[in-house]
Amino acid sequence: MTVRRRRWLHIALAPLVVAATLTAVTAPAQAAPGSGSSSSSSTAPDEKGGDELSDNSTLNDVLESTNRKYVQAKAQVATSTTQQKALATQIKDAEAKRDALTPEVASIAAEQYETGRLSASRFLLGADDSDDFLSKAVSLEEINALHDRKLHDLDQAIDAVNAKKAALDAEVKAQQTNLLAMKKQKESADKALALLGGESLTGGFVVAKSPVAAPAPRNAQGGFSPEACTVDDPTTNGCITPRMLHLYKEVKKAGFNRFVGCHRDGGPFEHPKGRACDWSLQKSGFSVAHNADMKNYGNNVMAFLVRNADRLGIYYVIWYAQIWFPATGWHAYHGVSNHKDHVHVSVL
């Protein structure tokens, strides 16, 4: 076989080498975007902060759910970002292969011109004998096919990787949005726990949501004017203020129906003024919380009061040796009673 023919047969084998290379270029390092576990990343988070939670869910349930979902969302973004980088590398490698072959293809095109791509008959009729004619025919076919195929295959590979990267970019963007939502829900759950005294007071064993109380009447300036003890106390023979009665009814409406004591004669604080009530943990009298039911009941009464403090005109709440003011939050309480047998609430 002539040297010229061997040269063109060698060139003709090049697309097979290129095709084998493209197999590695186009295959993604990991699962394609939208498949497997990564497809769940674009799912919008539910309003309760992750897993479906019932109306009776505790704040502890919400905290666990939001933290789990937040960690999962972070992992999904990290995994997909790694895939992004891998695909970007594949695109760069494919483009480099294409750029390296461009001079060779240009050389082929030049030789096509020299041998007469547009006048194949002149090129073939210039053969010295039948063997030379066959050699020129094979070479011409190889030249024509190779010119189109080499760059076409590489451009296809680059387009395929670009398409995968575009899909993954969109997925990562959705995952980052989901991560931001999970972060906000996690922060919201953490704030909710802090509002209710943190881990030390409730341990998270408190309802995730409390009923919304009807607002107490306000004055023309939007505040709460002082009120006298002018209405009958439903828990004693004494009196309470209209605002205290409103709070009492709202707490009852929220489902807290165990023993309550409001007016009490004597003492310097709000009970004699009809501006305070004590919510017991049992149906009759007062007893220190000695089981989970009693502690959780107190937690939930306290949560309802604190969450609705602005609507009800609450001055402060005392529960389990802690006192809460709307302006300053929770602090240790060192009064005569440690308030582990009832929740105390005072109104303005």
Rank of each mutant, 00 (worst) to 15 (best):
M1K: 09
R5V: 06
A14T: 08
A19I: 07
A24W: 04
S40T: 14
S41H: 07
G49P: 06
G50W: 01
S57L: 04
N60V: 09
N60S: 10
E64M: 04
S65I: 01
S65H: 00
S65N: 03
N67Y: 01
R68L: 09
K69R: 07
A78I: 07
S80L: 12
T82A: 08
Q84R: 10
K85W: 01
K85A: 04
Q90E: 04
A96W: 00
A96R: 12
K97G: 11
A109G: 07
E111A: 06
Q112R: 15
E114L: 13
L118P: 01
F123W: 09
G126W: 00
A127S: 08
D129A: 01
K136M: 10
K136N: 14
A137K: 05
S139C: 04
S139I: 13
E142F: 01
E142Y: 13
H147S: 14
D148E: 13
K150W: 12
K150C: 12
H152S: 15
D155L: 13
Q156D: 15
A157K: 13
I158V: 15
A160C: 06
V161G: 05
D169Y: 00
A170Q: 14
A174E: 14
Q176P: 01
Q176A: 10
Q185C: 13
A192G: 10
G198H: 02
L201T: 03
V212K: 09
V212D: 02
A213D: 03
A216I: 06
A220F: 02
E227T: 03
T230A: 09
T230V: 03
D233A: 00
G238E: 08
I240C: 11
R243C: 00
L245C: 06
K252R: 14
F256M: 05
N257W: 05
V260S: 12
H271P: 06
P272G: 01
R275V: 07
A276I: 11
L281G: 04
K283V: 13
S284W: 11
S284Q: 14
S287G: 11
S287M: 12
M294N: 05
N296F: 02
M302P: 02
F304H: 06
A309Y: 02
D310K: 08
I323V: 13
F325V: 10
T328C: 03
G329K: 14
W330N: 04
H334A: 14
H334D: 12
G335P: 03
V347R: 10
L348T: 14
